[in-house]
Nucleic acid binder design. Structure first.
Length: 115
DNA sequence: GTGCTGACACAGG
DNA sequence: ACCTGTGCCAGCA
């Protein structure tokens, strides 16, 4: 069958589509790590998920896809923090003046099943 | 092909 | 808390 390689594919690759769908399933007030989503999909790895989020993350709740260590997305800490406070996402050090807020991963991490 | 880069993860120091 | 090295793997020069 002719693969028909469309020169300018405006469509997201199927993989990216699945990553974004998975990101959409993360409930408000919770987060999933890049690795979590990769395992949920059963394909690719954290770096691949990260790549998709970097390219197309703006179309989904990107602040719910985070690093495993709970650090906020560099350059978007303010936006992310606003969302976390609005959704009641568990944070460590909710208000330490000099310390950068971090997610409380133990409580905020979504298990991938519970809604 | 080789080598570097990245919205990662994990173990050490 | 910060930095470094290693493993990982797709994308790109």
């Amino acid at each position: 069958m002719g693969p028909m390689p469309r020169p300018t594919a405006h469509r997201l690759p199927d993989y990216a589509d699945r990553v974004l769908s998975a990101a959409e399933r993360v409930p408000p007030g919770r987060v999933a790590t890049y690795g979590d989503l990769a395992r949920l999909l059963g394909e690719g790895g954290p770096r691949q998920v990260g790549r998709v989020m970097a390219l197309y993350g703006g179309a989904v709740p990107w602040w719910r896809v985070v690093r495993a260590d709970g650090r906020l997305l560099p350059g978007r800490e303010g936006d992310a923090l606003a969302h976390y406070r609005a959704e009641g996402t568990p944070l460590r050090d909710p208000g330490t003046p000099g310390g950068t807020p971090r997610l409380d991963m133990r409580r905020a991490r979504w298990d991938g099943v519970t809604r």
